[in-house]
Design a protein around this nucleic acid. Sequence first.
DNA 1: ATCAAAACGTTGTTTTAACAACGGATACGA
DNA 2: TCGTATCCGTTGTTAAAACAACGTTTTGAT
Lengths: 218, 218
Amino acid sequence: MRGRTLILRNTGLFEGIEDDEMDTMLKCLGAFTRRYAKDEFLFRRGDRTDCLGVILSGNVLEIREDWWGNRTVLADVGKGQAICTDYACTSDVLDISIVSTMPTEVMYLDVGRAANVCNSSCEFHNRLVKNLMRSLARMSLGMNRRLDQLSKRSTREKVCAFLSDQARAAGSSDFIIGMNRQEMADYLGVDRSAMSTELGKMQRDGILEFQRNHFVLK
Amino acid sequence: MRGRTLILRNTGLFEGIEDDEMDTMLKCLGAFTRRYAKDEFLFRRGDRTDCLGVILSGNVLEIREDWWGNRTVLADVGKGQAICTDYACTSDVLDISIVSTMPTEVMYLDVGRAANVCNSSCEFHNRLVKNLMRSLARMSLGMNRRLDQLSKRSTREKVCAFLSDQARAAGSSDFIIGMNRQEMADYLGVDRSAMSTELGKMQRDGILEFQRNHFVLK
DNA sequence: ATCAAAACGTTGTTTTAACAACGGATACGA
DNA sequence: TCGTATCCGTTGTTAAAACAACGTTTTGAT
């Protein structure tokens, strides 16, 4: 149970809650774990759930399928990350499917119970609710920034928005990014070589300087 | 106060809470209102707030500015809609500014208080917390869908993703959309005429049919 | 120190989308 | 009913991004 505690902490849901309170909390949340084989569906489009899941081990993919059956991998979720948080909070029907890519163990926590003050001595309940809200809000803020980047029309605009956010996150106009060019291009939905060319132009235009992953905005 | 009640209900935060309980709730949330003139800043980048705001009257814009000063209007927020929900929940510094476009009245609610069980008889507290979480999660789901659309490379893929979502929302492959072509194109970040051409091709390819705003996916 | 693989930037070519302009259809008010 | 404004689709043109291929630099393991 010690290993699990560490993984659960990674989700940010249990910040401010002592280790020795965790077991109580988990009971209070109706926690249970489930194992999946490789290539097993955890959820299919159309399902509902009141529980969010924390990946204890293994790996899953979130997949969306459009009307004509075209599939998109929305996210690659690994150890210590959560799934279904949004759906559990809204009680909405899932419009995605979730499938394992390897043997996977998931701990489920009932969100409905989290939002109800339980009868027992859960003075940490408020804390958990705040953590959950903060987690939801953080996701939302992150997506907002991503939307701002992706909604830009040109490669240059996307790059500008992306680098501005990186600079703000780093707290400086002089910073290092944790992605290589290919990852950055995929993230922005553009071609790697086209982006490389654009970065070159921007440097020549004098609005930034860079070598490899080290950028300075001007 | 009656008019306000109706507007506040529109936010979805007070679902399941009776009208005569509202005033108690509002006190409990430290509610207060503030008026702004036209072109006044409600918040500037770098500010913090513990309160979400509900627009009682008027209109505001959410604006993001990148490192080089390029401005983007992220959202146009009107009566009955909320601002700063995410920032209030995370206590993060705002990375956007919010400015009024006309005389505007805003009611602020302290999110921190919402997540704490108060001493008085607020049995509706849990309800409010659930509503707030649901609201956050709904925003998140909506943004996820939008991201799925915008992250597509080609116009056709974007249109496919968009129409699939519309169909799912309508619960049928035969549906009517509430946007005109220009709005739809802006939403997907593409050119209107290019999109129109693409829609024509898709119809010729037999994967959908449409007249005006009436679509049928095949 | 050497080698192989990965990462990056550059160039030329092809494909795609943006842009501009226009005509027909539709909606709406006078 | 007429006239006007809006909406929509189409076409030809221009601009931009994707694509493919390649040489250099960097990285990391042996």
